[in-house]
Amino acid sequence: MSSADDRGPGTGEGTPRIDESPTVPLRAGDAAVADAATAQPRVEESVTVPIAVSAPGAGEGEQAGGEDPGGEYEPAATGGPRRPGRRFSSAGAVIGLLLGLLGFALVVQLRSHGTDPELATARPEDLVRMLSDLDSRSERLRQEIASLEASQRQLTSGAQNRATALAEARRRADELGILAGTLPARGPGLEVKFVAGSEPIAASTVLDAVEELRGAGAEAMQIGGAAGTPVRIVASTYFADSGGALVVDGTRLTGPYTLLVIGDPQTMHTALNIPGGVVDTVHQHGGNVIVQESGTVGVTALHQVSAPRYARPVS
């Protein structure tokens, strides 16, 4: 090392010339300035000389590489100092480019190498231990992923189950609502009109008609009169005579009565027309029954449900 240190600065054979070294370049520089100031014709030479110099290996880095730079100062000095005359040349641009590249590469290298200095200096046993730690940790994490995926699957299927259960419950609620008269309904059915003759339509006749229609598969019914709001007919509906009028579930109706019923129209029509049936009975009392099949009958009257006072569900 000491020899290298000496070789660079000494520009020659060693320590005795250290004192001389500053003077040599200074002298060369002075000579060069003098050259530049006085000798114009040598500008041409300045282009050619460096080429000749560079060939024998007088590169900047190579000056310290072993040859005696002292001898090269003279020829280089004649060419070098003329540079200031043509600064910002293409060579300058190339130098700038190279140095920019160097800075870039330097930073890149520093960054890429400085990312994990801890691991680079760690002992192999430590590295092995860390590796096994990381392995077991990744194994643990993998198991956790598996269990989480399983629970996710369970939850998804649970949600599906709940959705189907909800849809089923909703469907049942609709059915029960129509049956209990709490929901309006519509569908194919009949429109039956009872027109009184000489004597009013009896409540028992209307009840017969309702029973007959239920037997024929009626699903929802309501009865309306010339006066009074229509009444939904459910399981607990009662019919009573009231001086020529009809009381249905506490609502007083006057004739003619219109019974709207949803069900299979033909079956119900046949059921009403059987001999000794509703139509016959009304005719015998001088009245008339007009039955009209309809594609869409709307049963819109609703029944107010009261909570049962005594009955309780078993389960």
Partner: peptide, 9 residues
């Protein structure tokens, strides 16, 4: 040293 040369560099 005063002997810098673009091309050489």
């Amino acid at each position: 040293d005063g002997i810098f040369d673009d091309k050489q560099f």
